[in-house]
């Protein structure tokens, strides 16, 4: 099977060469490239990471191995990457929010900071939405707050810390009395919504088919900008709550990596992120579109993101 893949990637590389789209390569990796994925097998990050690795391999001819390094939404993986000696082979793929929340909340315990890495780029931005059952008696945050006050609190499902933080901002500002129902993730949140045990909850993409089927509607957008598929739904900021969450999938390497390697890898990642294969998997797995901020843009996004997370935690 390995041989089969080698032949396949060799074929693909030839095609690309003929097409003239190959990335200019001054730098070549010494051995395998490892794309470490900070989440478990089978999740959306894992799926996207594996397709990304496959695409880079096809486009560059490098041997790219994807492996899962699960723990704390990428915290475990980035901890290890930050501690290892600088190398030109290991790239981490994680999500910014868990990293930034831990950096803000537990700066003494987290063994790294934003300078511990060289940044390669981003893969996409998650589209976080507050959704509700289609028959819920509210259509926006103001109505939801009013309904919650009148009815002993609306039960809101959340599957990750940032989602809860965003809702707590509303709770604090308007004393809405939301009751937070912790779930194992957006799949379970949707099960509880469909079963009627909660009225509203968070989703990062998998709710889109349910909008079509008429089971759910969108109350607010958690990101800083509206979503393409639902241009009429306003953000939290637009609805008067000064908070947002912009979860990005980003790639980073140990600080001190050979700049030529970072540059070549960043170029390879950029080419892959802009490929059709990655666009398709990002659409399928995260209902989003590929978005690469580049090396410098990624670092800027993280630095500014830290300030935003401090807002979320402000009393």
């Amino acid at each position: 099977m390995k041989l089969g893949r080698k032949i396949l990637s060799a074929l693909a590389a030839t095609t690309l060469f003929v097409a003239g789209a190959a990335v200019a390569q001054d730098w070549q990796p010494d051995g395998d490239i490892k794309l470490q994925i900070g989440f478990g097998a089978g999740g959306s990050t894992d799926v996207m990471g594996r397709v990304l690795a496959q695409t880079i391999e096809e486009q560059t001819g490098w041997n790219v191995i994807a492996e899962n390094k699960t723990g704390g939404g990428g915290m475990a993986m980035f901890t290890v990457i930050s501690k290892m000696p600088a190398n030109n082979n290991i790239i981490g793929l994680g999500v910014n929010m868990p990293v930034m929340i831990n950096l803000v909340k537990r700066p003494d315990e987290v063994p790294f900071n934003l300078d511990s890495f060289d940044y390669v780029g981003t893969l996409s931005r998650a589209q976080l939405a507050l959704i509700a059952r289609a028959d819920a008696p509210f259509d926006n945050l103001a109505e939801m707050v009013a309904y919650s006050k009148a009815n002993d609190g609306v039960a809101v499902g959340f599957g990750a810390a940032p989602q809860k933080l965003l809702m707590e901002v509303v709770n604090k500002q308007d004393d809405a009395g939301f009751r937070f129902v912790s779930t194992e993730g957006e799949a379970e949140t949707q099960k509880l919504l469909l079963g009627g045990q909660i009225l509203a909850g968070y989703s990062a993409g998998t709710h889109v088919p349910y909008l079509e089927s008429g089971d759910f509607k969108m109350i607010a957008v958690g990101n800083n900008a509206r979503h393409d598929y639902a241009p009429d739904t306003q953000t939290f900021v637009e609805q008067g709550y000064n908070a947002y969450v912009d979860p990005y999938w980003f790639l980073a390497m140990t600080a001190g990596t050979d700049p030529a390697a970072v540059k070549a890898i960043a170029a390879a990642v950029d080419a892959a992120v802009n490929s059709d294969a990655v666009a398709e998997i990002v659409a399928n797995a995260a209902s989003s579109t590929p978005l690469n901020l580049g090396s410098d843009g990624t670092k800027k996004m993280l630095v500014e993101g830290l300030d935003n997370v401090r807002v979320l935690f402000a009393d």
Binding site: V47, V51, P209, Y210, E212, D215, I281, A285
Partner: peptide
């Protein structure tokens, strides 16, 4: 995830 890799979106439809 195998469904998603092959372009099939699991869900109510």
């Amino acid at each position: 995830s195998a469904f998603m890799i092959h372009g099939v979106q699991p869900g109510p439809l």
